[in-house]
Design a protein around this nucleic acid. Structure first.
Lengths: 249, 249
DNA sequence: AAGTGGTCTAGACCACTAC
DNA sequence: TAGTGGTCTAGACCACTTA
């Protein structure tokens, strides 16, 4: 049969990419939230006036980007950052023998402050913008291993308090999602060595000047919007950071 | 119309995955090599007795894994590690201001030796197996930044000589591909901090004990076969290592 | 103009999940 | 049993490359 409406849009963009954008827009607008289901593929295909194959190609990409999760027989869901394997996509420190463990967190500091130039650049903020800055000490298998210094824009995290952070029940990105409807879907990380300053040395129980791994991360939400700037100081005496790793499939 | 041969294999494996394996097998057998083209999709679909849609789904995955590259209007090619963007998939050190540069290499050492236990484990070698071990000093923008200590199995690199390595015209993985038909398609990397030993300090022109980034990499070919073990020592005073980075698409 | 991969369709059937 | 996503087909047409 002949295609009815090839290239129905003004631009030459493929249909499935237009559908993908539309779904992404609905997602960003909060039309479907949390771990709950999207409409069935058949309905979505009707809504966007495309064939089911085209709709599926759009969803395929969103699933590959860990934005959606499909379950055969159940439905398609907004990806959720809980304490499953998905967690280790963003937590990339393991013991040198390979053992993975969930970290335990102790909140060390919390304050509201003007963003300095570096933070403004990383978070794409205007001059004078405020951020919440907080420091977490993370332990693995009882060892104090990581100090995270985290800055998030006040505009996105209105009314964030020390108590919320100290008492959150689950992971940090899960908390972002539950309390502020912010979904971290991508990160960009750069790694250097640094010498431990006095604060880090005290927290990690190492001598000042001890070499540490410094991981500098920007976390992004749907439209490449930066939502968090994080500097992690890691003691790699018994642990290590997972860099590139595509030895799968 | 009714599907002719649903589930033609004994197992319940999807057809497109069977096709993918078959293509991978042909690739590993050297049926198509280097940067040259595979047969057209139509022919491949006939050869494997599947519809073109199914064939495409198999090729889609191989392309996503950077094993094949498709060019509209030209054909489908075996991925090649040359001096283009693809190079930076495996070379992940950039200047702190973000500038990317191709490294220049100086071969420092070369020898044939028995693999020690760690190397045997990483390369899945038997006791007593030999490897070629060599050391490269890499410079970026004129700065001596990286010392790579590399071990490859003798069985895969029969007759490798110092001269070949010193005079190779292109990148190392390109050389593996051209001279030994070994395609690096995936890596697994772990990162730590280490103190520079005397050799590294001399080569990188830093004081002994200076903290360095240590990246430990296993490189894999088609069937998850390990083909190279590499330890990179990096001076991150002006450069940094690119960790996770999925802030695209 | 011929040949390649890229997009899109319409619909059948399978596998899994919920009720 | 009904509803969901997963697989597979057959073929039309588009966009790009090469000659």
């Amino acid at each position: 049969m002949i295609n009815r409406l090839p290239q129905l849009s003004p631009t030459g963009t493929p249909l499935y990419q237009q559908v993908k954008r539309a779904v992404l827009a609905a997602l960003a607008a909060g039309e479907w939230t949390q771990g709950e289901a999207l409409p069935p593929e058949k309905h979505l295909a009707e809504r966007f006036v495309v064939s089911i194959g085209t709709l599926r190609k759009a969803i395929d990409e969103l699933e590959a980007e860990n934005i959606l999760i499909r379950h055969q027989g159940r439905g398609t869901f907004v990806a959720i950052h809980s304490r499953n394997q998905h967690f280790f996509r963003f937590f990339r420190v393991v013991r040198q023998d390979g053992k993975k463990d969930y970290p335990s967190t102790e909140l060390q500091k919390f304050r509201r402050m003007r963003a300095n130039e570096e933070v403004r650049e990383k978070l794409a903020l205007d001059k004078g913008a405020y951020v919440y800055e907080f420091v977490n000490l993370l332990s693995l298998n009882g060892d104090k291993v990581i100090v995270d210094t985290i800055a998030v824009p006040e505009t996105l995290f209105q009314g964030l308090t020390r108590e919320q952070l100290a008492t959150r029940p689950s992971t940090l990105y899960s908390f972002y999602q539950d309390s502020y409807d912010i979904n971290v879907i991508a990160t960009s990380e750069r790694v250097r060595t640094v010498a431990a300053d006095d604060d880090h040395a005290t927290l990690l129980d190492v001598p000042p000047g001890n070499p540490l791994l410094s991981v500098r991360r920007v976390a992004y939400s749907y439209n490449k919007q930066p939502v968090e700037w994080r500097v992690s100081a890691i003691n790699t005496e018994h642990y290590e950071y997972i860099g590139q790793d595509n030895a799968n499939s």
